[in-house]
Design a protein around this nucleic acid. Structure first.
Lengths: 337, 337
DNA sequence: TTGTAAGCGTTATCAT
DNA sequence: ATGATAACGCTTACAA
């Protein structure tokens, strides 16, 4: 094949002007008689014409492409979010470019430059190093994934981690648990405080005292979980349940308990958070708080679309997605000895 | 901010022509004096100029974007492949658009149209419905992910599943296993025959007879694994080891065995294939054959880059990536009773 | 309802 | 070594 047909070829074939073809292409039904519209459509069909989005983008300064920037694509959390994003975006004819920074700040910054050079129409980002100003300076409509205090000028959508923590604890309390260990995750030097907030709120509402020994900070890893639970087991009285900051940590807990010949849930209950696929595959399968990953992505995409449509007129919005509890086999009633 | 600076602004600022700026931008060191080059660079810096890739693409008929089309982004296999693709592509300044078809053929076809409209420079695809002709008709350089008989006109890169199966069986044999059950996966009506080929080759090389009862077809799911192992347990003599077509199935096997109070690996050994992250999280952790997912992506990207550079001059290549065995705790020596 | 013509920001072809 | 100018394929005032 030689050259792909252009709008000009279509126009000539149909015996009309480029303008008319363009109108048809853009669904401008008002300014085009139905009969000529049919002629144009026939020409498009006959020639196998497909519009050159590059040329269009140059004119309209828009590409129908948005960028999804995340820190770690191998974290099973994100692919599910990405599905939601893509489904929503494709409904409106947008493509989604993935930008996976692998936790590297310089990559994240490079992605922003790419977004400008390529004139992407929007950015969806779970930021790790770039500041709010970096994002503002792109001039591209942006929505933040996750509830972050440092980006209040942007729309944000994230999971209700505080509420999730409280639900988890309430569920454990309903099984009779009163001494509940909390394994908090820390990354770099940052600790996410929302789970601790939830923990304290829960204790207050139940009139229980706060025992700092029950709260342990560990890395976001299986190893972190193993280490954390070992320290919890040394306490006396020993906690009858453990709530981990995420499923990976909780799985580490399960492994350590298995190796120590401590039966779950008979001797100790274990709960995670996120509901990654692996949580259903452990032995016993893990009770956890599910984040609505797909919905998170879908909603974030919707907000971004609105923002792309509306320009900078809107005030920034903050959307909180509730979590729900998934009861499997790693939790059970307290056995009094 | 008003308008982003164009090449014309830079030219004026530096007191040269657009052509010269363009030359500098494209690293044409031969046709531009070093001193003027510096002037231009300074102007670019001063104005914060970034080249408009849309305009460039319109002229050069190339966007620095490639498309990665896969059937299921939530399968933990693909994100790792995607990382390899991205790392390689970003080295050369390309972006990667993800196209996740969720097993829907019409979506896959729509992706190809998108690739044409947007003038993507290349396609990396694990095809599920589109034919070789569909792919050829895009006119875009393409590399197939996976070793497929039906796409021989394209470059392909995939894992050596036959070799992997043989290694797995040899390892089990070295532990004394002679009755090894094989759980084959089937999707839709297709069964991947490569694992069965490997199984038969192995038996032949060991001078062992082929017992069809030991080979069972199940869906690619945990449930499939549970069902399959149940049928294997009914045999007598009972197999002393099970090799599953992938890790998901193997995890189902582990669960069923746990529930039946059959100890792994003391009473029966279990092996999977792929090495998904969850394989390290089971109890006991799963011995498996790892596919080199990252490398698969990286190599596929490399082939694609060569192809983009070379035009259609090359003959189609087929690159096989070896697998390697990951010994964890779900396999052990046969215990004779 | 339809057409003309001027861009959009680059690169490529010739000159100089 | 540098520059003027014509594309690239589309959209969009503005005319008719």
């Amino acid at each position: 094949m030689k050259h792909r047909p252009t709008i000009w070829d279509v126009a000539r074939y149909a015996g009309v002007s480029k303008t008319t073809v363009s109108r048809v292409l853009n669904g401008d039904i008002e300014h085009v008689r139905e009969t000529t519209r049919q002629k144009v459509l026939a020409a498009i069909e006959a020639l196998g014409y497909e519009r050159n989005e590059l040329a269009r983008g140059l004119r309209t300064r828009s590409t129908q492409i948005i960028m999804l920037a995340i820190p770690d694509i191998t974290n099973p959390f994100w692919p599910e979010v990405a599905r939601g994003v893509q489904d929503r975006m494709e409904e409106e004819g947008y493509s989604v470019v993935f930008a996976n920074s692998d936790w590297q700040g310089h990559r994240e910054r490079e992605f922003l430059r790419m977004a400008r050079r390529q004139h992407f129409d929007g950015i969806l980002i779970n930021p790790i190093q770039v500041s709010q100003d970096d994002l503002l300076s792109t001039g591209i409509p942006t929505v933040i994934l996750g509830l972050r205090e440092a980006y209040t000028n942007f729309d944000m959508v994230g999971s209700d981690t505080v509420g999730a923590t409280i639900s988890a604890l309430e569920y454990l309390a309903s099984l009779g648990h009163e001494h509940i260990g909390l394994l908090l995750g820390k990354h770099a030097n940052r600790i996410s405080t929302s789970r601790l907030d939830g923990y304290k709120q829960f204790l207050r509402s139940q009139g229980l005292p706060f025992d700092p020994a029950l709260v342990i900070e560990v890395p976001f890893s299986q190893a972190g979980g193993r280490e954390g639970v070992r320290r919890l087991l040394d306490l006396s009285p020993r906690p009858t349940a453990v709530l981990a900051a995420n499923d990976i940590i909780a799985i580490g807990v399960l492994q350590a308990l298995h190796e120590a010949n401590i039966r779950v849930p008979e001797e100790i209950s274990v709960m995670g958070m996120d509901d990654i696929p692996a949580a259903a595959m452990t032995i016993p399968p893990l009770t956890t708080i599910a984040k609505q990953k797909y919905r998170l992505g879908y909603r974030a995409a919707s907000l971004l679309l609105e923002r792309i449509g509306a320009g900078s007129g809107l005030i920034s919005r903050r959307e909180v997605i509730p979590c729900n509890i998934i009861i499997r086999k790693s939790t059970g009633p307290v056995r009094y000895r």
